[in-house]
Simulated scan of single mutants.
Amino acid sequence: GTAVLALSDDGKRVLKFPLTFETQHCNAQVAARARSHMQESRMMLEREKEIYQHLGLRAGILAPLEISSVGLVFPFFKNGDLRVHLQKTWGEVGQDQLMLWAEEAVERISFTQSMGVYQCDISTRNFLVGDDLSLVLNDFSGSRIGDKAELVGPETSYAKALQEDQYGTVQGSMEGEVFSIGSLLYEILTGQKPYNDLGNSEITDLFQQGSFPPTSTLALGSIIRDCWMGRFSSAE
């Protein structure tokens, strides 16, 4: 991870703050690497603070309880993120709920894009499930805002093209975001990431060849495929 999460004693709040390492007794190479990680962690958290302040209070977007020099304080969501929730409840959740989650997820992303924010790491991991089962988009650590380039990239099954490093290039564009939305919808409706049983290099090779998992039997199959094929210009 790029930050530390700590749960409050009452179990109601989560503090997110930058990584810190003790380097006093490390050799020069290890110490330099640790300092680099700490600097990156601070940069990404500062970007996240900026984005939350820019987005303001809006239904479906996680609202920090506090933004300070120490870090960010958020409410705790007992249902966890959507990926974990899908894995725990798969087979129990009805199609109507899955379709509602798909609709909510795209609506949240569309709003952030309209505000000039590209998450650049779209995933079921970055949606929290509320007590009423509604989705709350969160985690803008290192995301793109305006002309400030992204500091993160997506996991392989959500990435449009091979990225030589974690920053990538395609994902900081609308084209990359739309591709990720296709994978997001696929995971919501199937409970698994695209090509979940394959390794990263195999997935990348297939994506570069324009080969994607079959979607014809899925409720939003044609939309998912159009996202992967680049036939949409935005989340709208």
Results as ranks from 00 to 15, higher is better:
Ala6Asp: 13
Gly11Cys: 09
Leu15Ser: 11
Lys16Cys: 10
Phe17His: 15
Leu19Lys: 14
Phe21Asp: 00
Thr23Gln: 04
Gln29Gly: 04
Gln29Cys: 07
Val30Gln: 12
Met38Gln: 10
Arg42Glu: 12
Arg42Lys: 13
Glu48Asp: 05
Glu50Cys: 08
Tyr52Trp: 09
His54Lys: 08
Gly56Arg: 10
Gly60Cys: 08
Ile61Lys: 08
Ala63Cys: 11
Pro64Arg: 08
Ile67His: 04
Phe74Gln: 08
Lys78Thr: 15
Asp81Gln: 02
Asp81Asn: 10
Leu82His: 05
Arg83Gly: 10
Val84Met: 11
Val93Gly: 02
Gln97Met: 12
Leu98Gln: 08
Ala102Lys: 07
Glu104Leu: 08
Val106Ser: 10
Val106Pro: 13
Val106Trp: 13
Glu107Leu: 11
Ile109Trp: 09
Ser114Ile: 10
Gly116Asn: 02
Gln119Trp: 15
Gln119Ser: 11
Cys120Gly: 09
Asp121Pro: 06
Ile122Leu: 11
Thr124Gln: 04
Phe127Cys: 01
Leu128His: 12
Asp131Pro: 01
Leu135Lys: 01
Gly146Ser: 13
Glu155Met: 09
Glu155Lys: 06
Thr156Tyr: 15
Thr156Phe: 14
Gln166Glu: 14
Tyr167Asp: 06
Tyr167Pro: 00
Gly168Pro: 00
Val170Met: 09
Gln171Cys: 05
Val178Ile: 12
Ser180Met: 06
Ile181Met: 06
Gly182Arg: 00
Leu184His: 01
Leu185Cys: 02
Leu189Phe: 05
Gly191Cys: 03
Gly199Ile: 02
Ser201Arg: 03
Ser201Asn: 04
Glu202Leu: 06
Thr204Ser: 04
Gln209His: 07
Pro213Tyr: 08
Thr215Cys: 09
Gly221Val: 06
Met229Ile: 04
Gly230Arg: 14
Arg231Thr: 02
